[in-house]
């Protein structure tokens, strides 16, 4: 039962993340949705797998995957955001501040 709840919550948050990818205006905001919702959604699914299989075998591997997912997701997000900025992706017109522009020039 707990496994089903955890996996459902994870899938739900992954859907929110995908909705964010479509609805939000620019690269930077979309990556926000992609990193946060999708990472924790996947963590929730992995925890569900752990509860389902119990300690040992597949369950334990799911637990080990969580910290790896966290580190890779954050590093990938940073690399994508930085790459997008240097490539010249514009910030949305609703943006109110850009301190990074002077530094890059």
């Amino acid at each position: 039962m707990a496994a089903i709840i955890l996996i459902s919550v994870g899938v739900l948050f992954n859907i929110f993340g995908c909705l964010g990818l479509i609805r939000l205006p620019d690269v930077y905001n979309r990556l926000q949705a992609a990193t946060k919702c999708v990472t924790l959604g996947c963590c929730s699914i992995l925890l569900g797998v752990l509860v389902h299989f119990g300690i040992g075998g597949a369950g334990f591997r799911a637990l080990v995957a969580i910290p790896i997912l966290f580190f890779t997701a954050t590093v990938a997000a940073h690399a994508l955001v930085r790459g997008a900025y240097h490539f010249g992706a514009k910030l949305d017109k609703r943006s109110v501040k850009d301190d990074y522009r002077e530094e890059v020039k």
Partner: peptide
């Protein structure tokens, strides 16, 4: 993030700060 995505008016005010 879920709140900002699901809200019909999308309450965002983005920017890059130092």
């Amino acid at each position: 993030v879920a709140y900002r995505v699901l809200h019909p008016a999308m309450p965002i005010k983005p920017g890059i700060v130092k």
